[in-house]
Simulated scan of single mutants.
Amino acid sequence: MSQSISTTQDDLAQKSTLELAQLLAEKCAIAPNDWHRLKANRKAQANQHITAALVYLESGQTQEALAHLQQAVGWLDRSVSPLPCPTHGTH
């Protein structure tokens, strides 16, 4: 078991900061089938935006990183609310 853990750590050590940020962003992204369950989950929403901000920051896109950080803060300070479901349309 410890052999697989050290191999994983070695694999991660070989990745660039951008690659690590992308892996983390993929892990934290809210999947479409989880959207309804997590749309109002402030931690999940903020986490998604923070990890996306890391990817943009590592890519040199500071304005996009800042926009995602501001969204994350909005989720945490409750100034942002979930949008209606995009597949239900307007009634």
Rank of each mutant, 00 (worst) to 15 (best):
M1I: 04
M1P: 02
Q3V: 10
S4M: 06
S4R: 07
S4V: 11
I5H: 09
S6T: 13
S6V: 11
S6P: 03
S6Q: 12
S6I: 13
S6A: 12
T7L: 12
T7V: 09
T8Q: 13
T8S: 12
T8V: 10
Q9R: 15
Q9G: 02
D10K: 14
D10Y: 12
D10A: 15
D10Q: 14
D11T: 11
D11R: 15
D11P: 00
A13H: 14
A13F: 12
Q14W: 12
S16P: 10
S16F: 12
S16R: 08
E19S: 13
E19Y: 06
L20W: 08
A21C: 15
A21V: 01
A21K: 01
Q22D: 05
Q22Y: 01
L23C: 06
L23E: 11
L23V: 04
L24Q: 07
A25K: 02
E26A: 12
K27D: 04
K27G: 01
K27E: 02
K27L: 07
C28V: 00
A29L: 01
A29V: 00
I30Q: 03
I30A: 04
I30K: 02
A31H: 08
P32N: 07
P32V: 07
P32C: 04
N33C: 00
N33L: 01
N33Q: 10
D34H: 05
D34P: 00
D34S: 09
D34E: 13
H36W: 03
R37Y: 08
R37W: 05
L38T: 03
K39S: 02
A40G: 14
K43R: 09
A44Q: 08
Q45I: 01
A46F: 03
A46R: 02
A46H: 03
A46P: 00
A46L: 04
N47H: 08
Q48I: 01
Q48L: 06
Q48P: 01
H49W: 03
I50M: 06
T51E: 01
A52F: 00
A52V: 00
A53M: 03
L54E: 01
L54M: 11
L57E: 08
L57M: 10
L57I: 05
S59E: 15
S59H: 06
S59F: 03
Q61A: 13
Q61P: 01
T62S: 11
Q63R: 12
Q63V: 10
E64Q: 13
L66V: 11
L66S: 10
A67W: 07
A67P: 03
A67I: 06
A67C: 07
H68W: 06
H68C: 13
L69G: 07
L69N: 10
L69V: 15
Q71M: 11
A72W: 06
A72P: 04
A72E: 06
A72C: 09
A72R: 05
V73W: 11
G74K: 06
G74R: 06
W75T: 03
W75F: 08
W75E: 01
W75R: 03
L76C: 08
D77R: 07
D77M: 09
R78S: 11
R78M: 08
S79A: 05
S79Q: 09
S79R: 09
S79F: 07
S81A: 14
S81G: 07
P82V: 08
P82L: 10
L83Y: 09
L83N: 07
L83H: 10
P84R: 14
P84I: 11
P84E: 13
C85K: 11
P86A: 14
P86R: 15
H88W: 13
G89T: 10
T90M: 10
T90Q: 13
H91A: 14
